[in-house]
Design a protein around this nucleic acid. Sequence first.
DNA 1: TTACATGGTGTTATATTATAACAATTTAAA
DNA 2: TTTAAATTGTTATAATATAACACCATGTAA
Lengths: 133, 133
Amino acid sequence: MKTMHKEHPLTKNQQIIFDLIDKSPEPMKAYSILFNVQKKGIKAPLQVYRALDKLVEIGKIHKIESRNAFIACHNSSCQVANATAFSICEVCEKVTEISSVGLSKYLANFKDKDGMKYSKYNLEFFGLCKKCR
Amino acid sequence: MKTMHKEHPLTKNQQIIFDLIDKSPEPMKAYSILFNVQKKGIKAPLQVYRALDKLVEIGKIHKIESRNAFIACHNSSCQVANATAFSICEVCEKVTEISSVGLSKYLANFKDKDGMKYSKYNLEFFGLCKKCR
DNA sequence: TTACATGGTGTTATATTATAACAATTTAAA
DNA sequence: TTTAAATTGTTATAATATAACACCATGTAA
Ligand SMILES: [Zn+2]
Ligand SMILES: [Zn+2]
Ligand SMILES: [Zn+2]
Ligand SMILES: [Zn+2]
């Protein structure tokens, strides 16, 4: 059996920024995050980007690539930091993380023409959410 | 029966920029495109971005969101401008457009928890290409 | 023809997103 | 305790993208 990963606690900056993103009902952009944490002593873009990089790396948040924005993981602290799927409403910009066993199995097992398999992927679906339909 | 869409020819700027991207063996970034077309009279970022926007819209090129780069469509002038899939090598950055009937059918028919279907999506697989393995 | 709408162009300026480089400090192993 | 690794703070700058406005070309309707 594989050794369990130790749960590294977040550092101060990482915790501040994670809390903010986690509370947000929508994906947050880096400079909006910066604006919101300046009262807590985080003053420079780099401090934000460094925390974001780390949080993405450990799977606590994900980056919505098409929007340059960050959202907290809602798959119980994602086992699949590197295998993400989202739905994005093109009208109200609501973003939802998709957790479908079927989908993740299909994609994890997908082989391209060369027989190549990919454990890491990012999928973004676009459409209209319930409200906007 | 609906009127057939006329194939609007590309404008001068669009053609110049499409030709450049189409000839490139790798995805091109906007400012690299700009640099390469300045001798042809395209001098400002906006001229590039406007052409890129249009080319993306009509499906002649796709944007690789995780790389902020643009690649010509290789699915015979993509019927699926809005349903794209790519594999990306994390070492050499080689990008390949995936054209798999199985994959596109699966994704086009995928329903989320709310029964929502999405005709539009972008999927980026990450791994190592043949050479880099 | 003339008016008008649409889409493309050229231009300057500016906004937004992200990283380089360096010094200091904290943390966790060895 | 010594050392290595990670994190922080800071200033400056790079890279990506859009706003605003004037002008021009083309197609369509009055
Ligand atoms: Zn997740
Ligand atoms: Zn919506
Ligand atoms: Zn294509
Ligand atoms: Zn490679």
